[in-house]
Amino acid sequence: MIKGVQSDIMPYLMPSIRAVFMRMDSKKLDNLQEIRMRAGKPLMAADGAFDLFVTADGELTGNIKDSYMVVQNEITKTIELMSENSVYAFQDEIKAGFLTLKGGHRVGLCGRVVFQDGQIRNIKDFNGINIRVAKEIKGCAMRVAGYIMKNNTEVYNTLIIGPPQCGKTTILRDAARLLSNGDLELDFKGLKIGIVDERSEIAACSKGIPQNDVGFRTDVMDSCPKALGMEMLLRSMSPHVIITDEIGTHGDGAAILKVLNSGVKIIASAHGYNISELKMREELLALIKAGTFERYIVLSSGEGPGTLEEVIDSQLSIIYRRCSPCL
């Protein structure tokens, strides 16, 4: 079995759905980035920039009339398999809207939300799932390492910016591994790293164990709100650097300033196409004005996920900018 879709995901699919994918060419199967099942809708998969329909013969097609139609029971049974036939035991993850499979693959869930006393208590009557295939790419952070590392024992406070599916989390994860382990080639000493993984996408913990390699000097607060997780790490784990994903909600700014006031560095990511877009969000604008981040790394998918577009310093001066291809 090829590690990834075949070994980590196929065993959790309802047999009828599994049989469809096992008819697919193994290279195509392993290159899938998403698998989507919606009740009464066509089975779909994404192999990059395109969402395609999947036929009963395991072929990817743009023709909806040839697609395999998913029934709700196939979704329900798949979730039962993913929760090891004990949906109740996975209640906390389910009510957060996702499950994490061994290997770090994240499964988004849709259905009828049970809302009580101002809180989500459960999700029932599942009508859709989205399996996001984890793509751990070791070494991908090397392209930005020189902009993050200040010297062989320190890093810059860094914000990684980019739109969805441009590789922010992948690079953030590999940066954690690189900074934690250290690197002889870069003459960088390993640091104690604390990760606040609110959405379980950086370390991708399954039953508390990180499924992704985030380094051997790294501690992970999994499924924990960012502000609380940062405070807990500061109080108990004495990190040199705290890493977290997708900042910008209320309270994130105050938590980050508390980290910096404690003498700890921060590396985070945020959704956006550029600095100008971030300035439209109050929480991030305050951090930019305060000069909180010493480096802004802007990513895109211009030449594939993880394309480095710009590197900007705290004064918003450009350190690096990718040249546009000649027309």
Rank of each mutant, 00 (worst) to 15 (best):
278 L>D: 01
172 L>C: 01
186 L>Q: 07
274 N>D: 15
207 K>W: 09
193 I>C: 12
186 L>C: 10
276 S>C: 00
192 K>H: 10
216 F>A: 10
190 G>Q: 09
256 I>Q: 02
246 E>K: 08
207 K>H: 15
171 I>G: 02
272 G>W: 03
203 A>G: 02
215 G>V: 08
201 E>N: 00
168 K>C: 07
281 R>M: 01
177 R>L: 09
267 I>A: 07
255 A>L: 03
264 V>K: 05
265 K>Q: 13
258 K>V: 01
184 L>S: 09
201 E>K: 04
253 G>A: 15
275 I>H: 02
211 Q>D: 08
228 L>D: 15
268 A>T: 10
187 D>G: 13
230 M>L: 14
178 L>G: 04
215 G>S: 14
201 E>Q: 02
192 K>L: 04
207 K>G: 06
221 M>C: 14
254 A>R: 05
243 I>A: 08
277 E>N: 00
273 Y>I: 11
197 D>T: 07
242 I>P: 05
228 L>S: 15
236 S>N: 12
281 R>V: 01
202 I>C: 01
258 K>L: 01
267 I>E: 08
226 K>E: 13
229 G>N: 05
250 H>E: 13
260 L>P: 12
270 A>F: 05
275 I>G: 02
265 K>I: 08
193 I>K: 10
218 T>I: 05
186 L>N: 11
209 I>L: 14
249 T>N: 03
216 F>W: 10
190 G>L: 11
170 T>L: 06
262 S>Q: 10
190 G>P: 11
237 M>D: 10
209 I>G: 05
188 F>D: 09
245 D>M: 08
202 I>P: 02
230 M>V: 13
248 G>N: 00
233 L>Y: 06
240 H>R: 15
268 A>I: 05
173 R>D: 02
178 L>S: 03
203 A>T: 02
278 L>T: 01
254 A>C: 00
196 V>L: 06
180 S>G: 13
218 T>H: 08
249 T>I: 03
228 L>P: 00
279 K>L: 07
216 F>M: 15
258 K>R: 15
252 D>Y: 05
248 G>A: 01
186 L>S: 10
269 S>R: 08
172 L>N: 01
181 N>A: 07
213 D>K: 15
204 A>N: 03
188 F>E: 14
264 V>C: 15
265 K>C: 14
221 M>F: 05
238 S>I: 07
269 S>D: 07
261 N>Y: 12
271 H>C: 14
273 Y>E: 15
174 D>C: 04
259 V>Q: 04
262 S>T: 15
215 G>R: 11
205 C>R: 03
255 A>M: 03
275 I>A: 00
262 S>V: 11
227 A>L: 07
169 T>C: 11
237 M>V: 13
229 G>K: 02
